[in-house]
Design a protein around this nucleic acid. Structure first.
Length: 429
RNA sequence: GGCUGGUUGCCCGAGUGGCCAAAGGGAUCUGACUGUAAAUCAGACGGCUCAGCCUACGCAGGUUCGAACCCUGCACCAGCCA
């Protein structure tokens, strides 16, 4: 799972298509080859968890550290209070208490990906540390003077908003100054000379460089952005069944997380292996071969799912959900599974408990959360999309299950559509 | 502070008194075909005790037999002016 030592991590990042844009390529590559570089990536606490979109940056950070460079992981306790302008609409401000809580959660999520020991140990930083004590006057005098409004207006994030009828508040307009200050401050405090970010951050990355050039002209600093990961049709990657795929296991279960990766499109599977895994070029070539010649085996998808689940949720959870996935999608007769295997598999699914007795399939769909409302459950049944114990429900909306349908006298496996599964346990007497 | 325009279902967006649970598109869901893939085709897409009823078109009131549509006030957004 470790990558072969690359002559220069730049080449590896290039091969993995992880560089969307960067400052002077030659100079940056040379810097990365010359010795340990201190670099930073910022994550804003805009939700209680990071999602797989952030994984691109987190893993790139990890790759660079493995190549001997020194990471600074910034969780934006300050920038999270302001909000990076989104192209569509103004953000709703979150309370300082909420943001502070999210800062802690994000830090905990990022930490396992980095090594905090050794010569190139990672460091966690929070931009609240250098902004909270700053007065408005200091901000305007010491920072504001370095920013020309014309240039600020020309940033994509800002101009998109100005050209929309949503407009933009002064608060969000100022965001780029805050992020620029971060780079400047980390350059001062830690000798940070490289900032990474998603491609949508490019404007903010260059703003930081411009600020450092003005304040500390002797410094040579760089920036690099990672590409937006997309699906084959160009739409955004990382959403499933209407929601984001979160790293927090209470928000997206390890099973659902694993399933998300297993369902990766054939057309993009090799791209994803390069971007998200630590497999070597040879290993990826083998998986690509498998995907091309025996796509139905889904070996590449399984490898991807296995590695991602291990990285995010650990070896143990990965093994559990992989086994569950095999058992439930094995195509075999569920009643042929022994109680322990089935129980373990069902434990990974969304579940509901109902009293022993007869229940309508509609109620099972709603109780397990597979359907959001009874109307939706009825629709599923009339569409022919309801399954009990992997057998299509034929009774229409009136279909019911009773104790005779129980697997091992306890469980019923409910399914909506091709792959949405949940478990119901009938309890009591 | 003034003026003008705007606020419609997950998103975009039609609708200017009854034929509106509200056109159209997107997203999403389901089926067929498959391989827990994609593409394609088809259907669905507020809720419920579902041939009926309830809740909905920024919020609150009003006019009317009847309002997303008219009136009043309020909130929020944008643009212009000062």
């Amino acid at each position: 799972m470790t990558s072969a030592p690359a002559a220069n991590v730049w080449d590896e990042l290039t091969w993995r298509n992880l560089i969307s844009a960067s400052t002077d390529e030659t100079a940056l590559k040379q810097m990365l080859g010359a010795g340990p570089v201190t670099y930073y990536i910022g994550f804003d606490p805009t939700a209680p968890s990071l999602h797989i979109g952030h994984l691109v940056q987190i893993l790139t950070m990890r790759r660079l550290q493995q190549a001997g460079h020194r990471p600074l992981a910034l969780v934006g306790g300050a920038t999270g209070l302001i909000g990076d302008p989104r192209p569509t609409a103004e953000r709703v401000l979150n309370s300082p208490e909420v943001v502070a809580g999210w800062v802690d959660k994000l830090r905990a999520q990022i930490e396992p990906f980095l090594d905090f020991t050794g010569p190139n140990a990672a460091t966690m930083v929070n931009n609240l540390d250098w902004t909270s004590g700053m007065s408005a006057i200091e901000f305007l005098r010491d920072m504001g003077k370095h920013f020309r409004v014309g240039k600020m207006l020309s940033k994509d994030a800002v101009s998109a908003r100005l050209n929309s009828d949503a407009g933009i508040s002064y608060t969000e307009f100022s965001y780029q100054i805050l992020q620029s200050m971060d780079y400047l401050e980390l350059n001062r405090r830690h000798g940070c000379t490289l900032q990474l970010g998603g491609s949508d951050q490019w404007g903010n990355l260059t703003a930081g460089i411009d600020l450092i050039h003005r304040v500390r002209p002797e410094q040579s600093v760089h920036a690099m952005s990672t590409p937006l990961i997309t699906k084959a049709d160009g739409s955004k990657f990382g959403k499933s069944e209407g929601g984001a795929i979160w790293l927090d296991p209470t928000m997206t279960s390890p099973y659902a997380f694993f399933q998300f990766w297993v369902n990766a499109e054939d057309a993009k599977i090799v791209d994803y292996l390069k971007v998200f895994t630590f497999r070597t070029a040879e290993e990826i070539a083998e998986l690509a071969e498998s995907a091309a010649t025996r796509p139905q085996a889904r070996e590449a998808q399984r490898a991807l799912a296995r590695e991602m689940t291990t990285l995010v949720h650990g070896e143990l959870a990965a093994t559990r959900v992989e086994e569950a996935s095999k058992a439930l999608f094995g195509g075999g007769d569920l009643s042929g599974l022994d109680e322990g295997t089935l129980g373990d598999a069902l434990a990974e699914l969304p579940k509901a408990q109902l009293p022993r007795g007869e229940h309508s399939v509609i109620d099972l769909l709603v109780a397990t959360g597979l359907s959001k409302s009874k109307s939706e459950a009825r629709r599923t049944l009339s569409d022919g999309g309801g399954y009990v114990n992997n057998a299509k429900v034929t009774g229409g909306e009136a279909a019911t299950v009773s104790t005779s349908d129980l697997l091992h006298d306890r469980w019923i496996l409910v399914r909506r559509g091709r792959r949405q599964l949940a478990a119901v346990e009938l309890v009591g007497e």
